[in-house]
Simulated assay, not measured.
Amino acid sequence: METCTVTGDNESLSAWFAKAASSLAESIAAWQLTPGFPRHLSTGITFDVVLADRSLVELSYEILRRYEQTVGPAVRFTNLTTAAVLVPAGTQARWNRLSTGSSWPGWKAVPTSLGRGHAMRIPGIAPLEPGVPMEWLKAPSTESAIGDAPLLTSPVPLVRCLAEARSILTPDDDERSPLSRAVSAVRAILRTPQRT
């Protein structure tokens, strides 16, 4: 995926992001001077974050677009294999339940959600400064916003598309043939006591 740039009104986006900064006025003033500088923001105030493998997030965003779902801002960390999706505040509190309900394949790699008590760095609003180890995978935009807030990715379709992406990228670990797996499943059912 190519690097994205922010579109729309940079001042209103800066003001929205600054609500999650330690000092609203100081943050806005600093970002006006250096709009390409990354921001260190608290999660759980204006947004929560879902962290997942970058390839999972990239593929799940393609799937979300195919299903015509809202695709909100996401950050790609260029020095890691991780990406962060900005989701509505409060997502962390229900993320485990959403993951369970989505039939997530295998519990070892369930993406993490961060809310209150955490913080993350996001790219600046203006074009990136050289050497910054992060970039917008999907940049925020005021062109698709509610008030001054950019639209964020909804956690329900996100977790489903992440699960679908994982099943595409990580085939079943069971290396038996499909016929062998089907026979084992039938045997398991036949061994189960039947109620009459």
Rank of each mutant, 00 (worst) to 15 (best):
R94G: 13
R65C: 11
R66A: 15
L98R: 06
R187T: 15
S113D: 04
R54Y: 11
L41H: 01
P111N: 02
E143D: 07
P105G: 02
L80N: 06
E135V: 04
W31N: 00
M1G: 14
L86H: 02
S167D: 06
A119Y: 05
I146K: 08
K19W: 03
P38K: 02
E175F: 15
A93D: 15
Y61C: 10
L59D: 01
P111R: 01
A139V: 04
R97I: 02
P171W: 14
W104M: 05
Y61Q: 13
Y67P: 08
P155V: 13
I146G: 07
G72V: 05
I168Y: 00
A74K: 03
C161W: 10
S14N: 12
A29G: 02
S167P: 01
F47K: 00
K108I: 14
T70S: 06
L51R: 07
R166N: 13
P133F: 03
A20W: 14
H118T: 09
G44H: 03
E62T: 10
S12Q: 14
T170P: 05
R39A: 07
L137D: 07
T34L: 06
I122V: 15
P127G: 09
S113R: 07
G117W: 10
M1R: 13
L137Y: 00
V71R: 06
L158H: 09
P127V: 12
P105E: 01
E11R: 05
R39Q: 11
V132E: 05
Q69W: 07
V49M: 13
A185F: 03
S154D: 12
R76Q: 10
V50Y: 09
C161H: 15
T70K: 13
A30N: 03
A52Q: 01
P105R: 04
P35M: 05
A89Q: 01
G131W: 01
S60A: 14
R116I: 08
A30F: 11
F17G: 06
L59T: 03
A18P: 07
L13D: 01
E62Q: 09
W16Y: 03
W107I: 15
T3F: 10
R54N: 13
P123V: 04
L190D: 13
R160K: 14
S23R: 06
P157I: 11
G131L: 01
L80T: 13
Q92I: 07
W31F: 06
G44L: 05
L169D: 05
S42L: 13
L59A: 01
I189A: 15
T81K: 11
G8I: 04
C4F: 07
A18D: 09
K108W: 08
K108V: 11
A83W: 02
T81L: 11
S103Y: 06
L114D: 02
M134G: 08
T5P: 00
Q194G: 07
I28A: 02
V87W: 12
V159D: 04
I189N: 14
G124F: 03
S14Q: 05
A89M: 05
K108E: 15
L13I: 09
S14G: 03
T70H: 12
T3H: 08
R195G: 11
S167C: 05
S23Q: 04
A93E: 15
R176C: 01
A126F: 02
F47W: 01
P130V: 01
V110C: 11
